[in-house]
């Protein structure tokens, strides 16, 4: 397992400020989906029982239906735990120096990317939908300089607050960068002023 206090390529004074997962509402959706799938064999059994169709008492069809039900339940269970694994392994870390995006897409498909705070140019939070509004969860988009695809923090809790915190960290990082390299300053703005004199 990955330890949060010993990240890969961790800087000397780098600390984790935000540790984000998807909102618990995603787990509720998985639970509803599983419940719906489990209702199907129950509905079939209820239908057979109510209309007194003796299929389950048949010496051949009964065992076949039982075997099919057992396999179906196992498959539904596997789908559920795969979705839970996908949920659990989707993590976003914001440290004092970078943003780390860890996304699991099913099994055997994992994406890890990071961007330095000094390269972040745009942070957007989005809360769209009835549940999202009342439970205050949504997406946060982090856009870096260049052609890199923007990071998407999916269904995180309090996206507005997350956006503000990342903004503050980006400002602090960029301020620290300017102070540690005073010769860099704001060269473009100074040169533009000179050209008008």
């Amino acid at each position: 397992m990955m330890r949060i206090d010993t990240l890969p390529n961790q800087g000397a004074n780098e600390t984790v400020v935000l540790f984000l997962r998807r909102h618990w509402m995603d787990l509720v959706r998985i639970a509803f989906f599983t419940f719906f799938l489990l209702l199907i064999p129950l509905a079939i059994y209820a239908f057979l029982w109510y209309f007194q169709i003796p299929l389950l008492d048949h010496p051949i069809l009964g065992p076949i239906i039982t075997l099919s039900s057992a396999i179906y339940l196992l498959v539904v269970y596997l789908i559920t735990i795969t979705e839970i694994t996908d949920y659990w392994l989707d993590v976003w870390l914001v440290t004092t120096e970078r943003v780390i995006n860890i996304e699991q897409h099913g099994l055997f498909n994992r994406l890890i990317s990071e961007v330095g705070l000094d390269l972040i140019q745009d942070i957007t939070s989005e809360t769209k939908g009835l549940l999202e509004t009342f439970l205050t969860y949504g997406d946060v988009y982090v856009q870096s300089a260049g052609e890199k695809v923007r990071f998407r923090f999916k269904n995180v809790d309090n996206p507005d607050e997350v956006k503000l915190q990342i903004s503050a960290l980006v400002t602090a990082c960029q301020t620290k960068h300017v102070h540690s390299h005073p010769e860099v300053g704001l060269p473009k703005l100074a040169d533009q002023n000179k050209s008008h004199l």
């Binding site: 540790f19 075997l67 396999i71 392994l89």
Partner: peptide
């Protein structure tokens, strides 16, 4: 039927492997 059970066991262990290998170390 036994083959299908074995495949289910395999996918279960894939899930456990992913948690063991890639999850953030925490009580959760």
């Amino acid at each position: 039927y036994l083959l299908l059970i074995a495949i289910c066991c395999l996918f279960f262990f894939f899930n456990i492997f992913h948690i063991y290998r890639y999850a953030i170390s925490s009580p959760g």
